[in-house]
């Protein structure tokens, strides 16, 4: 292959994005209206100085960081509840029958549809309210973690994680359970050393999808009242000021972070779960 091969291989990934950007630049210059479509350079400039404060809302990086912390808070909650619950539902038929019908009713409700109810319940309460902190550095961080946002993100991530954990456990072959029992495994051993690793390829796949959905719920969560930061809020606020370049920069940030998080999971899957591809 050599150098030429390298360029051919890399080129094939970059070709379509390159054409897309060129087309964007061409159309933008054609219309010459930065509210409808700003030029590539204008958006690129924002990425050149990502730490500079924008429309008095803090910089792109701080807003991305705030959003990331929010998503991770809601997502962690979904993982902590979804994975154990999914394993238990997958293993104990009775628990599955007890809960599945109930949980299936809530599955089709889009996270956004929860907004009015969630606002009625939590209003602008945040972790800062919970811990009775109303000043200082801790307040700045904790007040950004509103319950309503965490809930919306949680709902988005919860179902893919739960479903794939249930299916992962149901897919663990009985022979593994039987041989573990004969070798002296107790219930805790079965959960930790057979069900969890046996279901983990499916669980990690669900966690990957869940993180994607959680990240997608971000914009709707950050449109909730009381939010004064985050990429989602930055986008909506920039829209009211007709700063389309910031809107696009925000969208690109969301897309890139999402793609990186997905890549992170793919690397784990490739490293850790070689056995799933090679076993029948």
């Amino acid at each position: 292959m050599g150098i030429k091969g390298f360029f051919v291989r890399t080129g094939i990934y970059l070709l379509v994005p390159f054409v897309f950007i060129a087309l964007w630049g061409f159309i933008a210059r054609h219309f010459a209206n930065e509210v409808i479509l700003p030029d590539v350079g204008q958006v690129a400039k924002l990425f050149m100085k990502p730490t500079e404060s924008l429309i008095s809302m803090g910089s792109l990086t701080t807003n991305v960081a705030v959003s990331l912390v929010r998503v991770l808070a809601g997502y962690m909650l979904a993982v902590c509840i979804g994975v154990p619950l999914g394993i238990i539902m997958g293993y104990y038929g009775t628990v599955f029958k007890l809960l599945n019908g109930f949980l299936a009713m809530f599955r089709p409700i889009p996270p956004l549809a929860w907004v009015p109810l969630v606002l009625a319940w939590f209003g602008v309460a945040s972790l800062a309210t919970l811990f009775h902190i109303d000043r200082g550095t801790a307040y700045i961080y904790l007040s950004n973690l509103k319950f309503s946002m965490i809930f919306i993100i949680f709902i988005g991530a919860f179902y893919p994680i739960l479903t794939s954990s249930i299916h992962g456990v149901m897919g663990v072959r009985n022979i593994f359970l039987d041989s573990a029992r004969v070798l002296g495994a107790n219930h805790w051993d079965i959960f930790r050393k057979i069900l969890l690793p046996g279901a983990s390829p499916s669980i990690v796949n669900g966690m990957r999808i869940g993180l994607g959905v959680a990240w997608m719920c971000l914009v709707s969560a950050e449109m909730l009242p009381g939010s004064l930061s985050g990429v989602g809020y930055l986008i909506t606020h920039a829209y009211t000021l007709a700063r389309t370049d910031i809107v696009i920069a925000g969208m690109i940030s969301i897309g890139m972070i999402g793609a990186f998080l997905d890549l992170f999971f793919r690397i784990i899957e490739n490293r850790k779960f070689v056995w799933t591809r090679l076993t029948r």
Partner: peptide
């Protein structure tokens, strides 16, 4: 009492 099965019973991730 130990047991050996006909099906392959080794844990594929170990």
């Amino acid at each position: 009492i130990g047991m050996v099965f006909q099906e392959y019973s080794l844990l594929p991730w170990r």
